[in-house]
């Protein structure tokens, strides 16, 4: 039975327990950072940061909005990165959980192609091993009957892990409740991904890749036709 994680950003306080917990569990080395005028640090996902809390602030009239978005791989139900991969066994999908896993064979894959295929701009590359890196849903922990590290370390209880059907039900119930205070609230690409985010406002106000542009799942055919990669390149140039 596929699994899913519900991330309720209306309960997230950006304590970054998930970001730090993830990094500690994976035993990734520290990345030298500088204070650049924001709490978001490191500035972006990287080979040693597969979970990153993104911060965005807005002044609307006299009201401040500060949004937090714990970004990581969405574990697409039909993952476009897998479709784009030309290396057999590089990107696999675990049948039991639905987790999308990058194996050591991804070292032979092309980062640009794989990253270009991802509507959420997730994949990164380890400069040493050349292996492509992203969240693996803590498949090791799940198989040992433990919660994924981000869920485990979420002090606010903003993240829940479980059977996809149950999680969807929970997410939809929460959406209904939240809509009373935040009419623009939505669940992001809930039918296409296992990492289901609830946001209270327009997704772009959280992060430009919070939601996939294309509403339907990417097919291998459309990717091979190169329909998607120009979009990604455009987005990348916007990213500056």
């Amino acid at each position: 039975m596929p699994k899913a994680i519900f991330i309720d950003t209306t309960h997230c306080t950006a304590c970054r327990g998930c970001q730090v917990g993830c990094k500690e569990w994976k035993n990734y080395p520290p990345v030298p950072t500088k204070q650049l005028g924001t709490h978001q640090n490191p500035p972006d996902l990287g080979p040693y940061n597969v979970k990153l809390v993104r911060f965005s602030e807005h002044l609307e009239g006299d009201t401040v909005r500060w949004y937090f978005f714990p970004d990581c791989c969405r574990h697409c139900v039909d993952p476009p990165c897998k479709g784009a991969s030309s290396v057999e066994g590089g990107i696999i999908q675990d049948a039991a959980t639905g987790a999308v896993i990058y194996t050591e064979l991804t070292a032979k894959d092309d980062l640009e192609t794989i990253r270009g295929a991802c509507p959420y701009d997730i994949p990164r590359q380890d400069p040493k091993t050349k292996r492509l890196i992203k969240c693996d849903m803590c498949i090791d922990r799940i198989q040992a009957n433990l919660l994924p590290m981000c869920v485990k370390s979420c002090a606010m209880g903003a993240m829940s892990f479980g059977e996809r059907a149950d999680i969807l039900k929970q997410a939809e119930a929460r959406l209904e409740a939240v809509k009373k205070e935040f009419p623009k609230a939505s669940l992001l690409n809930k039918d296409e991904v296992a990492m289901i985010y609830l946001v209270a406002d327009e997704p772009a106000k959280y992060y430009k890749f919070a939601v996939a542009e294309a509403p339907s799942p990417m097919t291998r055919k459309s990717l091979l036709a190169g329909v998607f990669s120009p979009l990604r390149r455009m987005a990348k140039s916007m990213q500056g």
Partner: peptide, 28 residues
């Protein structure tokens, strides 16, 4: 704690855009 220092590495001072403009200071 390396992961903590990575998330918050350096002393900062939070200020309004109005004060920053008055002082000719840019973010960062």
């Amino acid at each position: 704690g390396p992961a903590l220092l990575e998330a918050e590495p350096q002393q900062y001072v939070e200020m309004s855009p109005q004060l920053a403009e008055e002082k000719g200071v840019k973010n960062g």
